[in-house]
């Protein structure tokens, strides 16, 4: 820009100010236009409407009995939904936080007033295997929750890590109850 004014304004000192103002403002407006034009290109690469439409999942819980578990696929990951029995809930609540590797109260892992329903991403926090414990016949580990066969991580009835190499509790996805029997994940 400095170059421009020196080459063009030779012998026209009195005009230099006006020209500089016009030139600067034109360049600013033009640069603003180019910057704005970049947005459609950037946004083009963001998830499109059809991808976003599949990003949340609604699931009807009405047919699930206490003690039953289902696995649903959400964003290409398994999500464990378990309707816990009263005994399982009690057991989860009884555990003192000091016993936990990744301390978290059971109440923080369920929705208020919906103690029965545990919704978690079913991926072991150690190296990404899928823990067993969803099927009736599966080993549920030493704490009655889930057991990861890859490296022997044991999770309790709240999905918290109790024993084995996994560093963290099973992750809770964002979800909400849209009514008493429907949960929307994502």
């Amino acid at each position: 820009m400095a170059d421009t004014s020196t080459t063009t304004a030779e012998g026209h000192e009195h005009e230099e100010d006006r020209r500089d103002f016009l030139l600067t403002s034109t360049i600013v407006v033009g640069a603003a236009g180019v910057a704005l034009a970049a947005w459609p290109f950037i946004d083009f690469m963001n998830p499109s409407a059809d991808v976003l439409a599949l990003a949340s999942l609604e699931f009807d819980l009405s047919s699930m009995e206490p003690g039953q578990a289902v696995t649903v696929t959400w964003r290409n990951k398994p999500v464990f939904i378990r309707r816990r029995t009263a005994a399982e809930i009690d057991e989860a609540k009884k555990v003192p936080l000091s016993d936990l590797k990744d301390p978290q109260a059971d109440a923080d892992r369920v929705k208020e007033g919906k103690d029965e329903w545990l919704v978690m991403i079913g991926i072991c926090t150690h190296l990404g295997c899928i823990p067993a414990g969803q099927k009736v016949t599966d080993s549920k580990g030493e704490f009655g929750g889930w057991f990861c066969p890859c490296h022997g991580s044991h999770y309790d009835t709240s999905g918290r890590i109790r024993k084995g190499p996994a560093p963290r509790n099973l992750e809770i996805p964002p979800y909400a109850f849209t009514n008493d029997t429907t949960v929307r994940i994502g």
Binding site: P40, F41, D43, F44, S48, A49, D50
Partner: peptide, 13 residues
């Protein structure tokens, strides 16, 4: 058609 309808600014592109 997906570009035209679902992709952000796909119609513009």
């Amino acid at each position: 058609e997906r570009i035209m309808r679902d992709v952000n600014y796909g119609w513009l592109m």
